[in-house]
């Protein structure tokens, strides 16, 4: 039961960042929100691995972290005019 509370708190966090990503006045705001959302989602994926008691689900979180980092960096370089 303690687990649902933890996952509920984190899910509310994801929804809050989603609100900012939808509202954000500038593209930079949306990108900041999406970047935080990927970090929160990585933690959420690890907790899902704990919930299902499957060790192999941790790999997915790591792949997600790598790809999200590269995507954030690509968008940031595009926004500052480096591409």
């Amino acid at each position: 039961m303690s687990w649902y509370i933890a996952i509920g708190i984190i899910t509310i966090g994801v929804i809050l960042t989603l609100i900012r990503a939808l509202k954000g006045p500038t593209p930079a705001d949306r990108m900041v929100a999406v970047d935080s959302m990927t970090t929160i989602t990585t933690a959420l994926l690890v907790l899902l691995g704990l919930y299902f008691k499957r060790y192999i689900y941790l790999d997915i979180a790591l792949v997600y972290a790598v790809l999200a980092f590269v995507a954030t960096l690509a968008v940031a370089r595009y926004m500052e005019g480096g591409l």
Binding site: Y57, V66, L73, A74
Partner: peptide, 24 residues
């Protein structure tokens, strides 16, 4: 053959490492 991975995700991760170098 042991984890939810495989050749295609592995290749994409390697290409993303190269993309990181291209970006920076």
């Amino acid at each position: 053959h042991l984890t939810p991975g495989g050749g295609f995700p592995g290749g994409v991760v390697i290409a993303s490492a190269f993309l990181l170098m291209f970006l920076s």
